[in-house]
Every structure is written in structure tokens, then in C-alpha cells.
Design a binder for these strands. Structure first.
Lengths: 197, 197
DNA sequence: CTCTTAAGCTATGGACATTAGCTAAAAAGG
DNA sequence: CCTTTTTAGCTAATGTCCATAGCTTAAGAG
């Protein structure tokens, strides 16, 4: 029984790679064990459960996404930063679909580690939008809109929900431009909550 | 052995109800059978498989969503129609999370029935945006952006990704207003594809 | 009232996750 | 080196769930 020399890190990393190939929901301990050259129960020496493994993938993915956004935004500001960050977000998400999906998981209210990872990633987005001198609830609304825009596009694209014919790249660029336009006039768009009814 | 009198429709409907309660991924034939007062294998008299059941839920959900959007848009146009449709979209999605998730599933390329349901739902959105006199690729970009915006917000809200403190309703209204703003200036926002780099 | 159809059942098997308990490889300590 | 401790990985076993096979009998057709 030669030892393979697994570590928690190696298990989680390989699980993330496997998940990106087959889909987060199709990630199975059986397949992971085989890929690591180990019997299935042996994995429990390094993880708590399948749910625990997914949690680890989620936390790692949030960290990776945060780093990607950080690198894209550093040294930039305003519309420049938004465009750069948006592209980095989309590219990373499409290259790592399962990691991206895992990064969207919201952990329970007592999971400090996960909350920290989530916050760190979102903080990058927040910082960039703050440059538009939005304050308080204005900023929160804008951040929610931006996150929605990015996530919606990437999620639909990853699922193949867009028709195949027309250039998706260009659609994305235009959408981001549109968001910047909206952002520039943000304080004017005060919801009256009746919206034409 | 009294007969319960199941039909395919009843099974699918109850499955949708159950899924909305426990989550689409947690929908199990065992639980569904128990809820219908029947043994698990008996379900196979009405469905092909779990995957087939999910497909049926998906098609039904797409139809329901399409109807909801249609009713919200009828008799309206322009920004009025967009706001009304957006609210209906969000409300339905939040009330039926699993149905909504199922409606996002993209079937294989040979599934005519599913393709028809998808197309019908998206057609409503398309028709409303066409009122802005966008043509060809312009319209496609705008539709993609609109779908992204709606789906992103609803998906994040349903997952609980937004912080709890600030009014989500208002954030949604503002986002839609922002989109309408962007849409009004749509033809001006031509992507140069370098976005400030 | 008979015959046919099919709804629902039991029995069974296979894929996974998970736990319990064993074995031997590695590491620690003299 | 040799001994002791730790622990990575193993086999065995259980429970859940999807799925198939074959039986039984309720319900509908004539």
C-alpha cells in the first residue's frame, strides 16, 4: 500500500479541476478518488464530507475570483476599471464554470471563513464603484445592479442560453457600456416605485 | 390496492410544487412518491426518469413564465412595458424558485418541444424591446443585456447573495430604470472593443 | 359478464456517500 | 538503527436513491 501523499489542498484543487470539467453538480467522490489514485473512503482522511468539500471549493473559488478582480482593477479607475474588471470576471467565470458556480454559494450565517472570502471578493467591486462618488444606499443599489449585470450575463452565456449566431463578446462590451451610462446618471434615476403603472 | 389515479400532469405539477419547496436539486423521486401516496417505482408509469421529470418541469415552467410575462406586457409599450414585465418576472421567479431554475435549463439541440417553450418565453421580451426601434444586432445585444440584468438580479436575490439590510425592491426598480436609460441611448453605445485599455 | 389494458406493487440491482475498524507506512524520539 | 506513535489508505458494511423486471388486480371496452 504505497502512500499517494495526499493533502487537503491537493484534494480540493483536484476536485475543483474535476468539477470544472464535469460540472459542480456532477462532482462525485468516487470519480475524484479514482482520479487521485485512491479508494473512495480514503478521501475522508482529508475532507469531512462531500458538502464539506464543496464548501472548500467555494471558499477557494471566492479567493481566486477576488484575486482576478483585484489584478484587473489595480491602477485603474472609473469606466476603465469597470471594463477591465468586467472582462476579467467573465473570462475567469467561463474558464472555470464550476468554480464560478461554487463562488455563488452563500454559506450559513455562522461560517466566518466563507463570509470573509465572499466579502473580500465583493469589496473589490465596491471599491471600484465608489470611485463614482456614490454614497450610502446609492452605492449599494449600484453595486447590486453591477453584480446582477455581470452574473446574469455570465450565467446565461455559460448555460448556452444565448443563441449561437451573434457575437457574444460584443454584446458583453455593449452591456457594460450601457451600465456605465446608467451609472453616470445614477443619482437621477430615483425609483418612484410606480414605474409607469 | 386502491388506485390513486395519477396522471403525468399531476405528477409533474406536484413535482414542481415539491421542488419549489426543497429546491430543484433536492427533488427526489422517493419524496415525490411519498407525497403522492404511491411507491417509488410506480412513478415510472408516468415519467421516463428523474431527468425526464426535470425536463417536463422545465418545459412547463418556461410556459408559465412566458404567460406571466405576456400578461404583464399586454396593452403596454416602451418603458411602461419593461417595468411591468420586469416586476412580473422577478415576482414569479421568487415565488417559484425551482420552476425558475428549471426554466433556465437549456435542452439538447434536438428537443423541439423544449426549444419551442424557450422561444415563446423569450419572444415576449423580444417584442417589448423591439418597440425601441432597435434592429438586427442592436436588438439582440439589448435583449441579451436585458435578460442578463433580470436573471442576474433574481438569481442573486434568490440565493441570498445580497446583504439583508437595504431595500431590495428599490434596488431592483433603480436597476430597471438604469437599463431603460441605457436602452434609450443604445445606438450611441457602440463597443469599440478596447474599452479604455 | 368477459377480456384487455395499464396502474401500482414487490423484489432486486447498481451507484454513491458515509462510518467502523484494520494495517502498514511514515515520522518522532531515543 | 531500533522502538513507538501517528495516520494515510484499505476492506467491509450500511443506507439512500434511481432504475428495471415481473406480478397482480383495478378499471374500462365490448
Amino acid at each position: 500500500m504505497p502512500r499517494v501523499g495526499l493533502t487537503r489542498e491537493r484534494v480540493v484543487e483536484e476536485a475543483a479541476v474535476l468539477a470544472d470539467e464535469v460540472g459542480l453538480g456532477q462532482l462525485t467522490l468516487a470519480a475524484l478518488a479514482e482520479r487521485l489514485g485512491v479508494r473512495q473512503p480514503s478521501l475522508y482522511k482529508h475532507i469531512e464530507s462531500l458538502a464539506g468539500l464543496r464548501r472548500n471549493i467555494s471558499i477557494q473559488a471566492k479567493g481566486e475570483l477576488g484575486n482576478v478582480l483585484l489584478r484587473a482593477a489595480v491602477g485603474r479607475s472609473g469606466a476603465d476599471a469597470i471594463h477591465s474588471m468586467s472582462r476579467a470576471y467573465r473570462t475567469w467565470a467561463l474558464e472555470h464554470p464550476a468554480r464560478y458556480a461554487a463562488a455563488q454559494i452563500v454559506a450559513g450565517p455562522h461560517d466566518e471563513e466563507d463570509a470573509a472570502a465572499s466579502l473580500a471578493a465583493i469589496a473589490i467591486i465596491t471599491d471600484v464603484l465608489i470611485a463614482y462618488e456614490l454614497e450610502g444606499d446609492d452605492a449599494i443599489d449600484a453595486i447590486r445592479a453591477f453584480r446582477s449585470t455581470l452574473h446574469g450575463f455570465v450565467a446565461l452565456e455559460a448555460e448556452g442560453s444565448f443563441g449561437l449566431d451573434v457575437d457574444i463578446e460584443r454584446s458583453f462590451e455593449r452591456m457594460i457600456r450601457g451600465f456605465v451610462t446608467a451609472l453616470t446618471n445614477w443619482t437621477e434615476t430615483i425609483a418612484t416605485h410606480d414605474g409607469g403603472r
